[in-house]
Write a protein that binds this DNA or RNA. Structure first.
Lengths: 365, 365
DNA sequence: CTGAAAGCGCTTACAG
DNA sequence: CTGAAAGCGCTTACAG
């Protein structure tokens, strides 16, 4: 843990001032385009600045002005396409607003998250966007963050946290997916993957229940199969599923990773998703469209979600960060229909409540 | 383009000093654990610091010390899993060395890249790691960067650039992939995807040629099919390939994205990769293992490559950045054999020069 | 229109 | 062992 990046001697305003025979105050004013300074002086200064390859030192400027032009972005798992696209969206929107992104990856470790946040805080970000590591605790984070820093938690809830929280509409999304399967004639539908301890999983499970109940189907307890949202575990469930639940014909999965893993596992048991079995995902990661069969899924769009997160935090920064207590911002989701992963139940009607399958990907609200 | 993140009044050393009845100089010394300061004074200062929730202001400290503890990381496409994993690797290694990552995504646009680099430079990074947007020009970048900033270009060469350059061993990697197919009995092997304008593509193509020639196979010009390294275009080639090159039985692809797209396209033409046709990729993105069939590919490991990039740049920072002219650092690659995408040619021997297929993923040097 | 001075939060010789 | 002072590069009232 050393860090001694020695900065080279850069051109400063003093250099420009001495070259132009003016004061640094004038240089500063000229470079910001202040109307106070004489047109010709400004031009002289600008040319000298250009010629000397001057780069403004924002740290010094921000220190003096007592402002910050950076936002800390802490991401639990950058190798996961969902979070990577989310981060790209955040960065894009921040850059457009003139802010810079201070990145911190935590690799899903709450301990590393503490270290990373502590380190980022020392660089005086104007705000923090946190996609928390699994197992993060609010009390712990509070002691790091204090109440001064505008903070937005995204994607996952933090137990015991009271920060603004951005999530996509998990309940409604799962509802959409389940209704889609119901419309295809399926009635025995499993809910696969995720853990009860995860808030997003609970919400999605509720959406699934909502849809079944409103179709007068009594959900069977055994239809819910928990597992960590990683491929291998989902694949393991896929291998077991045909044996355990032979009459189930479809599955609403916690997310795309689980759905993809499940389909692999099913295949290993001789059940071909998209022909013998219907599967839906959640997130619409790039792999969802690419997989064979392409996966019908639910999404707010990770990139769009990231941009939204940045907008929310920018509002809070510009607005002076009045805490009015925790807010929950729900981003709308849509069903992304790729018929291949969801065959209709044999002999059933294929009407899918309005979502026609054009053979290409299509989105239904 | 506004950025006015107003910093809240944070605790400073002045606050601690006044609480403890000592000078700020003493507080500074105490907090850095200087042996000069009295044990009890140090403890008092530390307790006060803790109690007041003090967070060191690195910008101020770095300004005074004339050092930087950040590194700029400019990435052409964060939504692409390869670059996302690369970025995660960079961030991880930088964090371990006490540096922070200033992230800038360019979305593959040289114009945005200019803006992003300019913005990052103002935050005084100790160095720059650049995975350049396609179409970047050295001359252009030089005018932004000057010669002061330690810079490492990674993944793709910049035309007219003379910075240190990190790449995986493209030529040898393609050689490995091609030899693998040859060993499976294939002789008519296409090279699919990428553009001649890309240095990595040219290198991989050379490795492919090397292998063919050393097996005394005369490569046919028509076997080389160019396309942008995106799924759709590769899929389009896949649809055409069986018609255009009916006797070709295998393809070495520019990268995984191309390979996956190609396999989709082939499937649309009734050719099933892994049964009727053999395909190899390059990069080993996560999707490669997940795809059906799992893809045999070549990789230096995007995460490992990122960590290596960070190490190289850290050396340069700590070492005082003596430019000894451009260096090219070649990261070793290995063949990742997943038999499913590469069936042996009908009736051929299945010996794959030493790489046994255990049914699970395995790596051959 | 321009300059001298103070100050952002910190660190570092230099006295004591 | 501790403090007063100077200074990193910039901006901002305040005089002139």
């Amino acid at each position: 843990m050393t860090a001694t990046g020695r900065a080279k001697a850069r051109t400063t305003m003093v250099d420009i001032a001495s070259v132009c025979g003016v004061s640094v105050a004038t240089v500063s004013l000229a470079l910001r385009g202040s109307p106070l300074v004489n047109e010709q002086t400004r031009e002289r200064v600008e040319r000298a600045s250009e010629r000397l390859g001057y780069v403004r030192n924002r740290s010094a400027a921000n220190l003096r002005r007592r402002v910050s032009t950076s936002v800390a972005l802490v991401i639990n798992d950058l190798a996961n396409p969902f979070f990577a696209e989310f981060a790209a969206g955040v960065d894009e929107a921040l850059a457009a607003a003139g802010y810079i992104t201070l990145l911190g990856g935590t690799g899903e470790s709450p301990d590393r998250q503490d270290v990373v946040i502590r380190s980022l805080m020392e660089h005086s970000p104007a705000a923090l966007i946190l996609s928390p590591a699994e197992g993060s605790f609010g009390s712990n984070l509070h002691s790091l963050l204090g109440y001064l820093l505008p903070t937005l938690v995204s994607n996952r809830e933090v137990a015991g946290g009271d920060w603004d929280f951005l999530v996509c509409d998990n309940r409604y999304g799962a509802h959409l997916a389940t209704r889609h399967l119901l419309a295809l004639g399926h009635e025995r539908i499993a809910f696969v993957g995720g853990h009860r301890s995860s808030s997003s999983c609970r919400e999605r499970h509720r959406g699934y229940m909502d849809a079944l109940v409103s179709s007068c189907i009594l959900p069977h307890d055994a239809w819910v199969m928990e597992c960590a949202p990683v491929r291998d575990e989902a694949a393991a469930l896929g291998r077991q599923l045909p044996g355990l639940l032979p009459d189930v014909t479809a599955a609403v999965c916690y997310n795309d990773i689980v759905a993809l893993g499940l389909m692999q596992g099913l295949a290993a048991s001789g059940v071909q998703a998209g022909r013998d079995f219907a599967v839906t995902g959640f997130d619409d990661i790039d792999e969802a469209a690419l997989f064979s069969p392409p996966l019908t899924t639910v999404s707010a769009g990770p990139g769009a979600l990231g941009r939204r997160a940045a907008e929310l935090i920018l509002e809070q920064i510009e607005g002076g960060h009045h805490r009015e207590g925790e807010r929950k911002i729900v981003a709308p989701v849509e069903l992304v229909v790729r018929s291949s992963s969801c065959p209709p139940l044999h002999g059933a009607s294929t009407s899918t409540d309005g979502a026609r399958d054009t053979g290409k990907d299509m989105k239904a609200p």
